[in-house]
């Protein structure tokens, strides 16, 4: 079960090496995103696109808000 994290936890996890993944559409990602985030739009998230992520490091996903 994925763990919900808040802003402070995101900062701590990223500082410890976690990977940030923006799952919004590419055009929204180009517009703005969290620093150091990688873009994998939800519609394109599959085994192939997930290969760019390291399996030995935590992954944090986010979108715009509670949508």
């Amino acid at each position: 079960m994925p763990l919900a994290v808040d802003r402070e936890q995101v900062q701590e996890l990223v500082a410890a090496g976690a990977q940030l993944v923006d799952v919004l559409a590419a055009v929204e990602y180009a517009d703005e995103h969290l620093p150091a985030a990688t873009n994998i739009p939800l519609k394109e998230l599959n085994a192939e696109t997930a290969r760019q992520l390291k399996r030995d490091q935590p992954v944090i996903v986010y979108c715009h808000d509670y949508q």
Partner: peptide, 17 residues
């Protein structure tokens, strides 16, 4: 989806950007 793909440590920043 990431968990289903086998990622063990997945977190969700629900409040987001």
């Amino acid at each position: 989806r990431l968990e289903a793909l086998g990622f063990a440590r997945v977190h969700d920043y629900v409040a987001g950007q």
